[in-house]
Nucleic acid binder design. Structure first.
Length: 194
DNA sequence: GGCGCGATTCCCT
DNA sequence: GGGAATCGCGCCC
C-alpha cells in the first residue's frame, strides 16, 4: 500500500523545460492505484509538446479542452484521440512557457500485468502505445487535471536507472503533420531496459 | 451550425 | 503496409 510513497516525483521535477522533462521521464515508473490494486510500468517512450510548438494543442491559446496544459505542473492532461483513444500527458514547463506537457507513449509493465491483460482483452501488446497504456492503467477523462505528485490514483516514482542515457533514441514525433523536424520524441527499446 | 481533421489502433488484403 | 472506425474540438462560413 505504501511501497511507492518514498520516491514520488515532486512538482519541481516538472517545473523545468518540457523537452528536458520528457527525456528525464524515460526510466521512471508510472503507478496507477485503482480499486485497491496497483498497476505500474516503466516509461520507455515520451514526447514533448510546448506552447511555442505548432504541434502542441496549446499552441493557439487556452481552450476548455486544453486548459490543463496551462495549469499547475505535475498534473494530468487527458484528451481523446481519433474519437476513440485516450491519451495521457503530464503537464511540465519552465517559467518562460505558458503551457506544455509530456505525452506518455509507452510503458513496460512491472506490476498488475494480469489486471492489464484482462482490461486489454488479452491483447498481446499491453501498453506499448499511448492509447493502449491508458487502457491498461484504466486512465480516463476522470483523471483530467488531477495532481500526480502525491500518493493518489496516479503518480510517478523515481526508480533506479536501468539503462545508460546514451541508449535513449531521439527522433521526430509520431503521427503529427506540423513541426515534424522537432526531435522531441525519446525512446528506449524494451530489450535495453529490461 | 456545420465541417474537416487528428499526439491511434487493429485487422485485413 | 494500407485503410477503416469514430467523435470531440476548433475554426470558418
Amino acid at each position: 500500500m505504501t511501497k511507492y510513497v518514498a520516491n514520488i516525483l515532486n512538482p519541481s521535477f516538472f517545473a523545468r523545460d518540457t523537452v528536458t522533462v520528457a527525456r528525464d521521464l524515460i526510466g521512471k515508473t508510472l503507478v496507477r492505484y485503482h480499486e485497491g490494486e496497483y498497476r505500474a510500468g516503466i516509461i520507455n517512450e515520451t514526447e514533448a509538446y510546448r506552447s511555442d510548438d505548432p504541434a502542441c494543442h496549446a499552441y493557439r491559446g487556452k481552450t476548455e479542452r486544453t486548459k490543463a496544459l496551462f495549469g499547475p505542473v505535475g498534473h494530468a492532461y487527458v484528451y481523446i484521440s481519433y474519437g476513440i483513444h485516450i491519451c495521457f500527458n503530464i503537464v511540465a514547463r519552465s517559467d518562460d512557457q505558458v503551457a506544455g506537457g509530456v505525452l506518455i507513449r509507452s510503458l513496460i509493465p512491472t506490476e498488475g500485468k494480469v489486471a492489464m491483460q484482462q482490461t486489454r482483452g488479452n491483447a498481446l501488446e499491453l501498453s506499448n502505445g499511448p492509447g493502449k497504456l491508458t487502457q491498461a492503467l484504466r486512465i480516463t477523462q476522470e483523471q483530467y487535471g488531477i495532481s500526480l505528485t502525491q500518493h493518489g490514483q496516479l503518480f510517478v516514482i523515481d526508480e533506479q536507472i536501468r539503462f545508460n542515457k546514451e541508449d535513449i533514441q531521439v527522433t521526430g514525433r509520431i503521427g503529427i503533420s506540423k513541426a515534424q523536424d522537432f526531435l522531441w520524441r525519446f525512446y528506449v527499446p524494451e530489450i535495453i531496459i529490461g
